[in-house]
Design a binder for these strands. Structure first.
Length: 112
DNA sequence: GGGGTGACAATTC
DNA sequence: GGAATTGCCACCC
């Protein structure tokens, strides 16, 4: 059996679950955080295999756009969920809203 | 084993 | 600011 996939999935899910509300991560970032650089594509597959609900909508492309085609049902759902968490949208791109990241800095380190 | 696929990324024009 | 090209690697026929 593919233990690789099992461990990989677990790590990815853990990382995704750890993304704070109102914050987004790129697929590459998630892969790195999980300890698997260059596995950006597998991140998507891993999330699709997750049995329990996951904040998948907090994972976006590296260019800060949504991974789905604009106008698709999934796209609108993701946009909706993100907006509820205070994420602003400029057209298709995300312009992360400024937020109280006092805790985020401690957990994730200073960003940018 | 071979070839196409993908909720991608980085680089280059 | 795009659009196109190349690299990537497990997964599934």
């Amino acid at each position: 059996m593919s233990r690789f996939r099992d461990s990989f999935d677990q790590r990815v899910w853990q990382v995704v679950k750890g993304i704070p509300a109102g914050r987004v991560m790129g697929y590459g970032e998630v892969a790195r955080a999980a300890g698997f650089p260059r596995y950006s594509r597998m991140v998507a597959a891993a999330m699709g295999r997750c049995p329990e609900p996951l904040p998948w909508f907090r994972v976006v492309r590296s260019n800060r756009t949504l991974a789905f085609e604009s106008g698709s049902a999934e796209y609108r759902e993701q946009a909706q969920l993100l907006r509820l968490e205070g994420v602003r949208f400029d057209g298709g791109k995300i312009v992360e809203a400024e937020r109280d990241d006092s805790l985020d800095r401690v957990l994730w380190g200073p960003r940018d």
